[in-house]
Design a protein around this nucleic acid. Structure first.
Lengths: 192, 192
DNA sequence: GTAAAAACTTGATATAGATCAAGCCTTTTT
DNA sequence: AAAAAGGCTTGATCTATATCAAGTTTTTAC
């Protein structure tokens, strides 16, 4: 399913045919079954990964053994652990597939090469990073100022479609609340 | 105090003398008194801002009138509102000085010019952005998985020196707890 | 297609942290 | 130097959300 990524590139940037081919020459297709790991805690992450199909989660496990979901990533988004990649240090996160998924991977060395040699690609990558940062800022703000109910309403507004494909337990974890609390909130808001 | 910024540049990147001069030619020096705003909610942010001296906070005000501090920025860091800058939309944040401060500003147009014309500058800027994103990710993780006490201990560990120059009320707001709770935590941890 | 596992709901109870309130220090302003 | 404002502490009480527990529904696996 490289075409999905090709379409994404064509949509986000303008490339010559030879540039497109050059990018494609580095692509590694990876398929993941549901529950399969893309990255495990302790591993060092070495890729840039684009999702063409499916859904993954990035999460950490605390000392008490509870999971905390940091992010969900679906088709047409990127995933990975930037901290592990940048500092080449063991990851504190796990990334696994919530659904059967398919990805396009680039080793980071190849990815940097592409950034250097294709300015339009570099610009696109930079824009993605800026948007990711803005999204992270907004998430921090919501975690500081929203009640549990507001967090949930904000979530379904911001990511319509996620609620139907991701188990509630995981959404609760992502929002920083227990599944029971989320269940009760859904019951209440359904009434209105 | 442009020298502080010059030193920062020399430390983070390698520039020719003419590149350095070129950068300097676009710099705007701005001084802020304590409590003075750099940006107010509703304004559109148009700069890239480096702090050479002092300390600022970025915060939002919710419907109930409570302030939520998103970040502190001190000398040798950058500040601003990327979302407002990127989309040229009214900011949801306020940025003001906690101490008398001094900044080096670049209008974003000039800043982009510098990024385009000086690859080393562009690389530096990109690295900053990546680190900012990683920091934001870590903050999300701590907000999801830490208790109030752990958040505070993590904060003083990560930013030693901040606790002595920033009022506790503001630190409490940054950590997402009330000043009373922070006061009690400090009392408890002092015992140990 | 049935058993096992995972996910969701609901109720009862507990608790971390919020809120309200008052008093005391410390800094700023005049 | 006095007054005012801002910041910190402490106690009493409240509340949103967590925890524990049991039952039900849905999904997965053989």
């Amino acid at each position: 399913m490289y075409e999905i990524f090709q379409k994404y590139l064509d949509d986000k940037t303008t490339l010559t045919l030879s540039e497109s081919d050059y990018i494609k020459s580095f692509a590694i297709i990876k398929k993941l079954r549901k529950r399969q790991y893309l990255l495990q805690e302790g591993d060092i992450w070495k890729y840039d990964a684009f999702i063409t199909q499916g859904c993954l989660r990035t999460y950490s496990v605390d000392e008490k053994g509870s999971e905390h979901i940091n992010s969900f990533s679906v088709e047409n988004w990127w995933t990975g652990d930037r901290e592990s990649l940048m500092f080449q240090q063991p990851s504190r996160f796990n990334i696994d597939a919530i659904e059967d998924s398919e990805l396009v991977l680039f080793t980071h060395d190849n990815f940097e090469l592409l950034c250097q040699e294709i300015p339009a690609f570099n610009t696109m990558v930079n824009t993605i990073l800026q948007k990711s940062f803005i999204a992270a800022q907004n998430r921090i703000q919501s975690s500081l100022s929203f009640t549990a109910e507001e967090k949930y309403l904000n979530f379904i507004h911001k990511y319509p479609g996620f609620a139907s494909r991701i188990p509630q337990t995981m959404i609760a974890s992502y929002l920083g609340m227990t599944p029971e609390t989320l269940s009760r909130i859904r019951k209440q808001t359904a009434k209105k």
